[in-house]
Simulated scan of single mutants.
Amino acid sequence: MLMNAPATFIQSYIDDLNDALNQLKPGAALTRIQAAWLGACLTCILLMNSVCWAKFERASLGDCKVAALSWVFRKASIPWDWLLRVSVVLILKRYGITEGVLAFDESDRARSKSTKRIYKVYKQKHKGSGGYVNGQTIVLLLLVTSSITVPVGFFFYMPDPALKQWDKEDKRLKKSGIAKKDRPIKPERDSAYPTKTEIALGLLKEFKVAHSLIKIKGVLA
């Protein structure tokens, strides 16, 4: 299937998104190039069921080059946080949603065994094979309503490497019979690696600020 222009409903969505961005945060609207890029990416995701620059280039018959698509994603000053917030606002408004239940979930996504460049990637137990693989853990905040369930927030979780190394060494020393007073003291957690509970509380606070008119009947975790 070939793609040379954004789907009509996707273009309409981007127009609504820009209008809402201008209202909530003046100056945050996408530029013409950014809007065209987002329209092309969303249409390709729909057609290819994948997020892959190479597939996007093939779907556009070479009109959208891998290098250009990647550059905009990595370098353009796109207000990503505001895009998610405004997108959720548009969806809730479209479906007339005024209340619901917030639910937390997490998802481990296995990546390449050798990769170290992906954001917040770390060594995980691979449930399928019983071995280990590098992967990411995403903590999700979902709004569950009578008509739809929609993700309204997310954050990447990663164990504190220093704490993880300390725990491994502490278990080894303990097994060797070393007394607790002679073992290294547990280091303080680095704020760059919050716990899942801390992440959940942060996502709740962000939701309250962004969607204060939505009545929350309960929180599941």
Rank of each mutant, 00 (worst) to 15 (best):
15 D>L: 13
16 D>G: 03
17 L>F: 14
17 L>A: 11
18 N>P: 09
18 N>H: 09
18 N>R: 13
19 D>H: 13
20 A>L: 14
20 A>N: 06
20 A>P: 02
21 L>N: 05
22 N>V: 09
24 L>F: 07
24 L>G: 08
27 G>D: 04
27 G>Q: 07
28 A>Y: 10
28 A>S: 15
28 A>P: 00
29 A>T: 04
29 A>G: 03
30 L>F: 01
30 L>W: 03
31 T>G: 10
34 Q>T: 07
34 Q>D: 06
35 A>C: 01
36 A>W: 00
39 G>M: 02
39 G>N: 00
40 A>K: 10
40 A>N: 08
40 A>E: 08
41 C>P: 01
42 L>F: 15
42 L>E: 10
42 L>T: 03
43 T>L: 05
43 T>N: 00
43 T>G: 03
43 T>Q: 08
44 C>W: 01
47 L>I: 15
47 L>V: 12
49 N>K: 09
50 S>C: 08
52 C>P: 04
52 C>L: 03
55 K>A: 06
55 K>I: 01
56 F>H: 05
56 F>C: 02
57 E>L: 00
57 E>N: 06
58 R>D: 04
59 A>P: 02
60 S>G: 04
60 S>A: 10
61 L>F: 06
61 L>V: 02
62 G>T: 14
62 G>Y: 12
63 D>T: 15
65 K>E: 05
65 K>S: 13
67 A>W: 00
67 A>M: 04
68 A>S: 09
68 A>P: 03
69 L>G: 14
69 L>A: 02
70 S>I: 02
72 V>I: 15
72 V>A: 11
72 V>E: 12
72 V>M: 14
73 F>Y: 14
73 F>V: 09
74 R>S: 11
74 R>D: 08
76 A>H: 06
76 A>C: 09
77 S>V: 00
78 I>P: 01
79 P>D: 06
79 P>A: 09
80 W>R: 03
80 W>Y: 08
80 W>P: 00
82 W>V: 06
83 L>Q: 10
83 L>H: 12
84 L>Q: 07
84 L>H: 11
87 S>R: 09
87 S>T: 15
87 S>D: 04
89 V>H: 11
90 L>K: 08
90 L>A: 11
90 L>Y: 11
90 L>G: 10
90 L>S: 12
92 L>F: 10
93 K>Y: 02
94 R>I: 05
95 Y>H: 15
95 Y>W: 14
95 Y>L: 12
96 G>N: 08
97 I>Q: 05
98 T>N: 01
98 T>A: 05
99 E>K: 15
100 G>T: 12
101 V>F: 14
103 A>V: 14
104 F>K: 06
104 F>Q: 04
106 E>G: 05
107 S>H: 11
108 D>Y: 13
109 R>S: 11
109 R>L: 15
111 R>H: 13
111 R>G: 08
111 R>I: 11
112 S>Q: 02
112 S>W: 07
112 S>M: 03
113 K>I: 12
114 S>W: 02
114 S>N: 02
116 K>G: 03
117 R>S: 15
118 I>D: 01
118 I>Y: 03
118 I>K: 08
119 Y>T: 10
119 Y>A: 02
121 V>Q: 11
122 Y>M: 10
123 K>L: 13
123 K>D: 07
124 Q>I: 10
124 Q>L: 15
124 Q>M: 15
125 K>Y: 14
125 K>H: 07
126 H>V: 02
126 H>K: 04
127 K>D: 04
127 K>W: 03
128 G>H: 12
128 G>I: 12
